[in-house]
């Protein structure tokens, strides 16, 4: 009895410190999470509470061509993950191969990560416009044939968005990899070098395996970004157009909720995104456990 009372007292003391923060997270994240799942099973709109409709919303989404196009576009943006990691691996290898001024290059490559997606997107609206700097540059370089309406051609637009996402991602991925690289035991690299292995062989076989964890971390962040942080790109660069060719799930959700007022349907889209987020959540909890942070 005494032990139980003491445990309760300890829990109560803990609550005092945690309560304000947890209450806010509960209000802003946990409560809406419950609600979004609940509403995805109703035909609720902004103005009507709606009634329970089972899985109708999901059925409707899965039979909607626009939903699948949006999903495909998310998958296309997901290509930024392997691409950014591949490029970052090469960049890190070159940086550590031992040249002067590596720090400056690193800084230059990191710069795109700092500004907001919204700021970057507006810059690229200009850069990629029909008469804009990129096409000018191509024409000036005698590659005028490559010049195109980057954001207004339905076949090209989503790939342009991918280019911008990739452009913004690389610096951060390089930052993650170089951070890890700095903590790799240099004597390992030296030992391989003494054994007569060339730099790239040493790098791939000794350094890169040691970076597996951070590469997984970069991949997971890229994954969640491709599904859940593309909103600002799409809403500014293309508004889903042309001809709804660049819808992503996020943008679809936003339009359903705020233009069409279809709360139930928008919630169902949110649940799809939630599944992706939960996969990432599971990974983060798992790796925090492994690093004994919990």
């Amino acid at each position: 009895m005494r032990a139980a009372a003491a445990a309760t007292a300890r829990a109560a003391r803990g609550a005092g410190w945690l309560a304000p923060g947890l209450a806010l997270v509960g209000l802003i994240v946990a409560y809406p999470l419950v609600r979004v799942v609940e509403w995805s099973l109703t035909d609720r709109t902004t103005f009507l509470d709606g009634s329970f409709v089972g899985l109708d919303n999901y059925r409707q989404l899965l039979s909607d061509e626009l939903f699948w196009r949006a999903f495909t576009n998310n998958l296309i943006l997901l290509l930024s993950v392997p691409l950014s990691i591949a490029i970052a691996l090469v960049v890190t290898g070159v940086l550590y191969r031992g040249l002067r001024g590596g720090r400056l290059y690193e800084l230059a490559i990191f710069v795109p990560f700092l500004p907001a997606v919204a700021s970057i997107a507006v810059v690229f609206l200009y850069v990629l416009s029909a008469g804009g700097p990129l096409n000018e540059l191509l024409r000036g370089a005698g590659a005028g044939a490559l010049a195109q309406p980057w954001l207004t051609d339905a076949d090209v637009a989503i790939w342009s968005v991918l280019g911008v996402v990739l452009w913004k991602r690389i610096g951060f991925t390089v930052l993650l990899l170089t951070a890890r690289m700095a903590s790799i035991d240099r004597t390992l690299l030296d030992a391989a070098a003494v054994d007569g292995a060339g730099w790239w062989r040493t790098y791939w076989q000794v350094a890169v395996p040691g970076m597996r964890g951070i590469i997984a971390f970069a991949a997971v962040l890229g994954f969640i970004e491709a599904f859940s942080w593309t909103f600002a790109y799409v809403v500014i660069l293309t508004r889903g157009g042309p001809d709804r060719a660049t819808y992503t799930l996020e943008y679809l959700l936003y339009r359903l909720q705020f233009d069409e007022q279809l709360v139930g349907l928008a919630s169902a889209v949110a649940v799809f995104l939630l599944v992706a987020a939960l996969a990432v959540a599971a990974y983060r909890v798992h790796s925090a456990r492994r690093e004994a942070l919990l």
Partner: peptide, 27 residues
């Protein structure tokens, strides 16, 4: 502080880090 449910709460905090705004924006 060591209190009951501490590890679980902490895991919950880490998990919540992964929830993007778009998922909860509707409610």
């Amino acid at each position: 502080l060591r209190f009951a449910g501490r590890g679980l709460l902490l895991a919950g905090v880490v998990a919540t880090m992964a929830i993007p705004a778009i998922v909860v924006i509707v409610p």
